[in-house]
Structure formats: C-alpha cells, structure tokens
Design a protein around this nucleic acid. Structure first.
Lengths: 192, 192
DNA sequence: TAGTCTACTGAACGTGCGTTCAGCGAGGAC
DNA sequence: GTCCTCGCTGAACGCACGTTCAGTAGACTA
C-alpha cells in the first residue's frame, strides 16, 4: 500500500513490493493471485480503514478530520497517498469511497444547516460535492501545496497553515458583494 | 499530449503514440530524442498554451476562465487532462505552472480586495493557494465530479452546474456564525 | 546527372515486467 | 518413521517496452 501510494500502481513492480516485504516475488502472487489482486486487497484495506475512522470520528467536517489525522505521527500519510491514487486512477473502489465522502459531507451540511450553524444553499447535493472537492484538494495536490509552503511533504504543519485561510473563506466568503453571485444566477436562469 | 493526458505517462507507449500519429515508433524518437524528450515537448507546449490563454483573458477569476474555456467545443479538454498529469506527476514544468497559477490568483485577489469587491484576509498568499486549489480541484478530480453529476466526462455542463454552488459558497461562506473561525484562530494562537 | 540531405521505416536488441512452476524444508498427522 | 501439507524460493517464460540502426525514397543542390 505504501509503495503503491508513493509511486503509483503501474510504476511499482511486484519485485519491489516483494523486496520491501523481504520475501520473493512468487510469494506475493501466491497470496494475492496477481498484481491486480494485490491492488484490490489494498483498495479494500484502505477504504475500510478510512471509512471506519471517519465513522468513529463523525459529526465533524473534513478539514477538522484531516487535522486530527495528521496530528497523529504520520500514521495516515501512506493511506492518504493511496487514497489519492484511488480517487485519481479510476478504480471502482475509489469511486465508491468518493461517493461515500460526498454523502457524509451532505449529511454534515444538512445537520449544520438545521442547527443554524451553516448557511442555506440552493442545491445541497452539488454544494456537498464542492465542499468535498475543496476538502480533498489539499490531499490530492499535497505535493504542490507543501512545496508552495516550503515544506518537504504533506504534514500536520502544512495543513495547519491552511486551516485559518480556509476558515476565513468558509466563514466570510471570498466576495464582499453579492454582485457576481447575482450575475451567475441570472446567467443560469437565462441558459437553462 | 492527448494520449499522455488520457492514460498517463508510464501507461502510454511510444508505439501507441506513433500509431495514433500514423508513423513508425522510430520516427517519434528521431524527432524528440527519447520518450522523456517527447514529454518535455508536451510540457512546454501545454504550459505555454495555458499561460498564454490565461494572460489573454486575465483580470478574471479561475472559475470564470474555466467556464469560458469549456464553453468552447472541447478544445481545451485534452490540455486540461495533461495539466492534471503535470500537476500530479511531479514534473518541474508542472511545479512552475502551479506556482504561476497561484501567483496569478494572488494578484487577482489583491486587485479584488483593493477594489472592494473581495474581503480582506489575514494571509493573502496562503488564501491565494487555497483559492487556486479549490479552482483546480474540479479539473484534477474531473472523473469523480462528472460521475457524481451523472455525466460521462468533464464538460461545460458539469462545470456550469458547479458554478452556482461555488458562487454561493464564495459569496456567503459556508458557516453562518464566526464561531468556528474564532475557535480556529484561538487554537492557532495557542499553538504557534 | 550525381551527390547530399532528410524524413522515415521496420527489424532488431536488451531490459524489466507479470506470471508460472518445479522443488525445498519445516511442522503436524498417523 | 513416513507422509502430507504448505509457505516459500528462485529460475525461467513470454511479452511489451524504450531504444538503436542500417537502409529507403524523395527532394533539393550543384
């Protein structure tokens, strides 16, 4: 899982995995049937692990969950790398995981709106999609983010530096006036 | 460029590229020296193309630029795919392109704040990074986004459906109260 | 016409890949 | 003690890859 996450599926050979594990290439395929089988096993492990953790720490937002995870000693970083590959490489398990995350986000938004903690939106489902995207973006583009902040790789410090700007954006918004929103709304009604 | 964008660098063979172009594999390497040279040529082409376009249509935000691009008949989609690969695969050209985008975003925010159209932020540079991340997220995770919206792939319709929720989020914010922002600010001061 | 250049081909080479398989050795069953 | 199972090895297989190179055909130059 760590090697797949770090180097991608195609660029990581069964021989490298076997060497890392201190066994022969034959044994890996003896246990998992094929390289594809090994990937499936990793998919299921990571998806299960992440979803279990998310369930256990529910009722919080993505950003908060990320900061909590990364406060722990780099235990989740390998899983985050693998999660990124899953989301981007187009596997079925990745699709399922993404849908689960969006679904959780939508529920979270619904509760936040009901409790008066969050604003009302015209399209809850798509808003949840956008919020989930923004939450995943620092993970998926972790390399660029950490590089831009002068760090060696994605770590707790990087995500902490993002936290305040994200909170400011999510509390006050980006735009000071509803001008552009109204313009967009008008354009949408004009088109469809 | 199209094949690299669609399938990734490692998974796209010189033979496949040659076949797509209707020539022999030897000719491709005759012109570009190696597969790596071909990648460099693609990097430069796409980076130049995107930056040129961005310069020509400056003074607008990322979301607006995206909608404009995708309103055109799929001309930029291949370049977007390649852009995604550049950002994620960790090439030098991709790093440069990302830095350019963040820089442009920061200038755009600066102008918006000066004109009173945008809010003030405590950390302009990191805010620009976050805004750029949110702008790139629908492109980078285009597969998931279009799938979640029931479309076949990233297209103008998908990005249009994101526009209004994004504008709502960026205008009114997500949180109705400054409670969480204050809590984050307090935590930040407490820690560092 | 002869010479040169250049875009281009297609067969070949070495390499590393995923995968297969005969065999080995330790541990439990009888 | 003998057999069997099973985790495991390491050599081998076929394949696809990036890359090389001798050679070809057409166009331009003198």
């Amino acid at each position: 899982m760590r090697l797949f996450g770090a180097g991608g599926f195609a660029d990581t050979s069964v021989r490298a995995i076997a060497a890392e594990a201190g066994v022969s290439p034959g044994l890996v395929l003896h246990h998992f049937g094929s390289k594809e089988g090994l990937k499936r096993a990793c998919d299921e492990y990571v998806a299960g692990e992440l979803i279990d953790t998310e369930v256990a720490t529910s009722q919080q937002d993505l950003i908060g969950a990320m900061r909590r995870w990364l406060a722990e000693p780099d235990a989740y970083l390998a899983e985050f790398d693998y999660l990124t590959r899953m989301l981007l490489e187009g596997s079925h398990a990745g699709d399922l995981l993404f849908d689960t995350l969006v679904d959780r986000t939508e529920k979270m938004l619904g509760e936040g709106i009901e409790s008066g903690q969050m604003n009302h939106f015209s399209d809850l489902g798509t808003t949840a999609l956008v919020v989930a995207l923004c939450g995943l973006a620092p993970l998926v583009m972790g390399r660029q983010v950490s590089r831009a902040l002068g760090e060696d790789g994605l770590n707790a410090k990087v995500l902490q530096r993002l936290a305040l700007p994200v909170m400011e954006l999510f509390t006050h918004g980006l735009y000071a006036t509803p001008e552009l929103l109204e313009a967009t709304r008008a354009a949408m009604e004009g088109e469809g």
